[in-house]
Design a protein around this nucleic acid. Structure first.
Length: 271
DNA sequence: ATGGTTGAAAGTCAA
């Protein structure tokens, strides 16, 4: 069977619910992982997703900021939201697909929203950057303690780091810009490789091809300047590595009316 | 050197 999973930082799921359900109708991923839903649980648009066929839902939100969700056509039995860094941050959700999901049964999907980290790349001067680094440490500790990559699993989400040279429009100009500083890129790369994950995007589309999933709202013309970064990722555990078939950045979504600054990234697996 | 935009929510803060 085919299994497709999309990750998308939606920057308010309530504001963009029409765009999201249109995406689901047109592209029909089996599972959609969202970040920055910015919505308390009681206001999550559960009905709109159910009506679109995504009746299996796990979400956790804060009022006005953060928040993650997983909505799925395939049933899942387990779900878990970890509170990272001793905060009530709503930056993580895991689900495990159920027996009724056929060949996908038992696959865990880990959805993360890593802190952006503020503007100054110095943990002493900037508590938000310190939080980002602390959060990465917490993900590393989770990986060591729980070995999530030892099972068939995907780690997806807005990791807010563009790890490689061609994951940004200008490597040189972004070396001191939060999201592409050496402390972030080396920490993320160490985390990924030591925990046993494979970067799906770069497996299929190796450097030096430029790959972006995010374009700033602040550009006058995002498409003309094309100053993007690859902040959104899909990682595969070893067991799923041979099943990797396709990975898509839906960059046209950045040109939709009132878009998110991130575009959907979708992986297709052949199980 | 610094600005530029967006969302949530009602002044600013986070991104």
């Amino acid at each position: 069977m085919q299994l497709s999973v999309t990750t998308w930082n939606i920057n308010s799921v309530r504001l963009r619910i029409g765009m999201v359900t249109r995406f689901l109708k047109d592209h029909q991923p089996d599972v959609l992982c969202l970040q920055e839903t910015k919505t308390p649980d009681e206001q999550f648009p559960a009905k709109a997703f159910s009506e679109a066929g995504y009746v299996h839902q796990a979400f956790i939100g804060n009022k006005g900021y953060n928040g993650v969700a997983i909505v799925s056509k395939l049933p899942f039995s387990e779900k878990e939201a970890m509170a990272m860094c001793e905060r009530n941050d709503a930056r993580h959700m895991t689900v495990v697909l159920d027996k009724a999901a056929g060949a996908a049964a038992g696959i865990a999907i880990h959805n993360f929203y890593i802190p952006a980290g503020g503007d100054i790349a110095d943990p002493e001067a900037n508590p938000k950057f310190a939080h980002k680094l602390h959060f990465l440490d917490a993900v590393g500790a989770w990986g060591v303690a729980r070995n999530p990559a030892g099972r068939p699993s995907l780690l997806v989400g807005d990791l807010n780091i563009a790890p490689y040279e061609h994951d940004v429009w200008s490597h040189k100009q972004l070396l001191d810009v939060v999201s592409h500083t050496p402390i972030e890129t080396t920490t993320l790369e160490k985390l990924r490789s030591e925990l046993g994950w494979t970067d799906a995007a770069r497996t299929l589309r190796p450097e030096p091809e430029k790959l972006y999933s995010w374009w700033s709202y602040r550009a006058a013309d995002w498409q003309a300047s094309n100053r993007g970064r690859r902040l959104d990722h899909i990682w595969l555990s070893d067991a799923l590595r041979p099943t990797l078939r396709e990975l898509t950045f839906l960059s046209e979504a950045r040109g939709w009316e009132r878009p998110s600054d991130h575009v959907p990234v979708t992986v297709q697996l052949e199980l």
